[in-house]
Amino acid sequence: MTAMSNRQSSSEKLIALGACISRVAKERDKSAFAELFDHYAPQIRAYSLAREPGADLVADELVQEVMTRVWLKAEKYNASLANLNTWIFTLARNCRIDYLRRNGRYVSEIDPTDLFNDMEDEGPGPFQLAQQSRAEASIREGLRQLPREQSEVLTKVYLEGKSHQQASEELKLPLGTVKSRVRLALKKLEVLVER
């Protein structure tokens, strides 16, 4: 498949999934929810397994947590703020943090609930949907072209959930190198906002 038709099909898929989430929100439609499950559950499991390879039960539990929130929060999903894929990512990330904390692997006195509000109940941001999907396609393309050492640090940080410190230990790199590789990768992906 060409890059163009790939992009085409993934944006069509996203439109179909967007219709599902609004049916879940407005009509409490379980078959629409089942479609969302079929699409996202394998992604969420993969995300969990990236952090804990082989931990299938943990992965199932994360699916259950995330999809439960999808059912309960579908009404709050705001397409003008983030596309559905990004919303699911932020839910999966938040659920993973909660899970680690509940299971004592993050013995912190800080409750993460109010730290990552993202878009759960904020008003529409400055982004337009069309602009957004263009940005997503270019991030996707950019990720494909990143040098290996840069995509490696992004994978550690985003998918394996490693702190910069842990990434530097595992990759046997100085902490400063890890940070500068993250920065270089973001620059290449053209996602940096001028300050």
Binding site: Q43, A46, Y47, A82, N83, N85, T86, I88, F89, T90, A92, R93, D118, Q132, A135, E136, I139, R140, L143, L154, T155, Y158, L159, L186, L189, V191
Partner: peptide
């Protein structure tokens, strides 16, 4: 967040 979503 979009970068995270694309990586996922």
């Amino acid at each position: 967040n979009r970068v995270g979503s694309e990586l996922m």
